[in-house]
């Protein structure tokens, strides 16, 4: 199940960082969503972060909210999302993929049941946007029981003590926030993440992926120079979907170009 470990090892050997795009499963509809996910992988994504559409996404800015609304309007449900994931996993046995979603979707059928379903669909990790370290115990327990990695977030305002706890608890990778606020490409990641990344490294954290406000290759490059193991780009990826809803082929081509460009920036000198 150690797809993340294998990935980071391979990337190290190739002197590369990871590029991890995020999309909402079911956006804009189930069939297109499946094609989008396959396109991202074929274009060179190292891993994927995938959202489950939720009615009240408090950690997300307008771009990802709209993606959730598009998917929900097409009737997206967690069982349908798991179906799509299962199809993707059958085609791509090695790429790590993680879920990024909200607690109430996990709770609805019982935490353990949700994690089991996720494991059965080939999911490697789960990050719950509204479950901080302090509330993570029952989720972490389910993760351990099912062999799923529980991802935690290291925010820029965390105390050193909290960072140590995040480093100790997060397995697979650690999601490092590039800035405060909600998801969105409108506001660039604006912090020098070096100090944060250093502290995590000293605390023996799982590899750090930097997210929030990452939309251009030079930001990916910078994240890796500063010490991140890679970068996650959500809203910029979803913007391409939103801007090309009328022309699927063009959407897939542009996603491909975007992933190629972002991935190219992960090569270390």
């Amino acid at each position: 199940m150690d797809r993340y470990k294998t990935l980071f090892k391979q990337l190290n050997e190739r002197k590369q960082g990871a590029f991890v795009p995020f999309v909402m499963i079911g956006d804009p509809d189930p069939d297109t969503s499946f094609e989008i996910i396959c396109q991202l992988i074929d274009s060179g994504a190292d891993a994927l972060e995938l959202g489950f559409p939720y009615s009240d996404p408090i950690a997300d800015g307008p771009t990802i909210q709209k993606a959730a609304i598009r998917a929900l309007k097409e009737g997206a449900t967690p069982p349908q999302c798991f179906e799509i994931l299962t199809k993707v996993r059958a085609l791509y046995p090695d790429i790590p993929f993680g879920l990024l979603l909200y607690s109430n979707l996990v709770l609805a059928k019982g935490i353990e049941t949700f994690y089991q379903r996720a494991r059965d669909a080939g999911v490697d990790s789960i990050l719950i946007a509204d479950v901080p370290l302090r509330e993570v115990a029952p989720f972490k327990q389910a993760a351990d029981n099912t062999g799923i990695e529980q991802i935690l977030i290291a925010p820029p305002n965390a105390s050193d003590e909290s960072l140590k706890e995040v480093a100790a608890a997060s397995t697979g990778y650690t999601y490092v926030l590039g800035r405060a606020g909600v998801t969105g490409a409108e506001t660039d990641a604006n912090l020098d993440a070096r100090a944060l990344l250093n502290k995590l490294q000293q605390a023996n954290s799982a590899p750090s992926l930097l997210g929030f406000g990452i939309s251009r290759p030079e930001q990916v490059k910078q994240a890796i120079v500063e010490g991140a193991a890679g970068a996650i780009s959500g809203s910029a990826t979803v913007n391409i979907i939103e801007n090309n809803l009328h022309d699927k082929q063009q959407m897939l081509n542009k996603l491909s170009d975007f992933v190629h460009a972002m991935k190219a920036a992960t090569q270390k000198d």
């Binding site: 408090i58 946007a129 509204d130 479950v131 901080p132 935690l152 977030i153 965390a158 909290s162 405060a180």
Partner: peptide
């Protein structure tokens, strides 16, 4: 938390990590 954050099984602090401080 310094004060009790729950009322029986209810309550808690289900927010993004960023808001905890």
């Amino acid at each position: 938390n310094k004060l009790e954050s729950r009322f029986g099984e209810f309550g808690g602090m289900y927010v993004p990590e960023l808001l905890v401080p």
